[in-house]
Nucleic acid binder design. Sequence first.
DNA 1: TTTTTATTTAGAATAATTCTTGATCTAAAC
DNA 2: GTTTAGATCAAGAATTATTCTAAATAAAAA
Lengths: 143, 143
Amino acid sequence: MAEQITDDQVAEKLGGLRMTKQRKVVYEVVQELAKEHPTASSVYTRAKEIMPTISLATVYNCLETLTDAGAITQVNLHREASRFCPNLQPHAHFFCAKCNAVFDVNLQDKADASEPWDLPSGSRIEEMNVAMRGLCPDCRDSK
Amino acid sequence: MAEQITDDQVAEKLGGLRMTKQRKVVYEVVQELAKEHPTASSVYTRAKEIMPTISLATVYNCLETLTDAGAITQVNLHREASRFCPNLQPHAHFFCAKCNAVFDVNLQDKADASEPWDLPSGSRIEEMNVAMRGLCPDCRDSK
DNA sequence: TTTTTATTTAGAATAATTCTTGATCTAAAC
DNA sequence: GTTTAGATCAAGAATTATTCTAAATAAAAA
């Protein structure tokens, strides 16, 4: 599994903000569902099983707070619902056009993702977002 | 300016579909506003000046048709409105976090954008989407 | 011309997300 | 241990980009 951090490390990243029960549950659900790269609503569905009183708005709030704190990342493709990912290593995402699965794609050892690009000189890149779309191995086989 | 194609070439790409007045206007507006990477609604605003009867739904339809035909590409970042781009060369987009401008970022000569990535073996990539966020040269200076 | 099919229009519908407001909790001050 | 102030949460309303629907129009085929 990809690099994730512990609840305590999340608490640290939150800085002045509190590590509330809700934030803890939301973070743990994102970890639990990491493989499927859950949307806010799948996080909500699962979180409610653990904490029945949690609201969808709170799930959104927590996801935003965790994202801003740098504990998880938000992944978008096209206009679909955002997905969330607890893997903090630099990585890209591969979306299977057929089964809709999302895979983490790691950066090769010592590679620089911006290397092939002619960056505007003098610009500072803070974030790079790489998404690939195609057929995953399984879907390619099962023609 | 980046590589764009002529109306006639768009007509060809449309295949069986017709190059209607509306599609022509929409394509030309996307070309005209290429530098700002217009959203559907900015295309609509400008298109209405040229063809006052055109509707927003038609603008959306045309943008979708042109995208499907491969005459323009749809660019997304975060959850903002989609933007459209007539540059058909492989390129990435740089979004300035301060002034909100969008710049095309070219692929270096003979470079392969997927090179730094550890692709799932056996997968076939059909499309790659690279977005960068940061400060453009202008915004970096004007502290 | 008549028929068929594609396209456009206008407005309703949708879906993800954000906002608003009042209630609740927590931490620190008293 | 209360009180107070600020943070957080819950519920539902509001927003926004986009898609859908159905009727009208335009173009192509017969």
